[in-house]
């Protein structure tokens, strides 16, 4: 790590494609052995940032250091130190499991003796023992995903970039995958992961929320929950949810209202005072409230309140 405590340092990073600014002046740092979550809706600039950090795209301006090396200047030195898994789990479907592993071991220049051991490790880790000679294209998504991770870390990189690693994978496989990520982090590997699943964000040590190329919040999951929301959060269960939402958005004393599953989440300045008021307000409009209580915000609430998702959800509702 060149004596550098920080695995990833990003300063004033900007990336433009023509007129479109994909990454708009962002700065953050990720420490060694940390699970660093990069959150945001689709098109927020997550993949662009990760591609810059892997040396696949050149930053328009600003600086990105990975393992202490300037990515824009010495991409090849960075590549020795990183593993990268792109959104599509890019493996060769027409090659067998073992052939994919041998190929990537070769690409990373893992020496012969070490390669056998690492390949065996990756097969075990992915749960593919006995399936080494299957064509990769025939594997289910969860296996492919773990195999892709195995291929990306055969050379024991100290920093791993995972771009939406769990998209299109069933919940059990997602859980297994996050266990693998935690195991790697325990061994001192820095894991830089992008996701738009809020439940996954809870697994991260540190989060950066990004929206339309800008950082809107950062901190640990708990910090974010506490700091990023002004006011308190109410859960409201009632009939005619759509009508209730419409009414509450214009109600005095309600800062914000959004659909959450089958219920509504309200942001109010003072929960205790608001509970009877909301009940009455809805009652006057013929809506029966079955449950109303103060709850602790989840990351999804934070996310909705901080990003453009909020506007989008309201539109969908309308």
């Amino acid at each position: 790590m060149n004596g550098q405590p920080q695995a990833v340092v990003v300063q004033d990073l900007v990336k433009r494609f023509g007129d479109f600014t994909a990454v708009d002046n962002i700065s953050f740092e990720a420490s060694r052995g940390e699970i660093f979550g990069f959150l945001g809706p689709n098109g927020a600039g997550k993949s662009t940032t990760i591609r810059i950090l892997c040396g696949l795209l050149h930053p328009t301006s600003g600086k990105a250091l990975v393992a202490g090396v300037d990515v824009a200047r010495e991409p090849e030195r960075v590549r020795q130190n990183i593993g990268y898994m792109s959104q599509k789990f890019s493996l060769y479907n027409d090659l067998k499991v073992i052939e994919n592993l041998r190929f990537f071991a070769g690409m990373y220049g893992v020496n012969q003796a070490d390669a056998a051991e690492r390949i065996a490790w990756a097969i075990d880790m992915a749960g593919l023992t006995g399936r080494e000679h299957l064509l990769t294209g025939t594997l289910a998504a969860g296996w492919k995903q773990r195999l892709a991770l195995g291929c990306a870390v055969l050379h024991r990189p100290p920093i791993v970039f995972l771009d939406e690693p769990t998209s299109g994978v069933d919940p059990i496989s997602r859980r297994l995958f996050w266990e693998l990520i935690h195991r790697m982090a325990d061994e001192g590997v820095t894991v830089f992961v992008t996701t738009h699943y809020m439940d996954e964000a809870e697994y991260c040590n540190r989060l950066v929320l990004i929206d339309r190329g800008r950082i809107v919040a950062s901190g640990s999951p708990l910090e974010l929950k506490l700091k990023s929301m002004e006011g308190e959060l109410l859960l409201v269960e009632c009939d005619q949810v759509g009508k209730a939402l419409e009414a509450l958005q214009e109600a005095p004393g309600v800062t914000d209202a959004a659909i959450f599953g089958h219920a509504l989440h309200l942001v109010v300045p003072d929960a205790e005072r608001a509970i009877p008021e909301v009940r009455n307000y809805l009652g006057e409009r013929g809506i029966t409230v079955s449950r109303i209580e103060q709850i602790r915000p989840t990351l999804e609430d934070v996310f909705v309140s901080l990003t453009s998702l909020k506007g989008r959800r309201e539109k969908e509702q309308a």
Binding site: R79, Y84, S90, L91, Y92, N93, M107, C151
Partner: peptide, 13 residues
């Protein structure tokens, strides 16, 4: 097209 080129390009090849 299938994205493996991106994967190869991040290796030290």
């Amino acid at each position: 097209e299938i994205g493996t080129l991106e994967q190869i390009m991040v290796t030290p090849i």
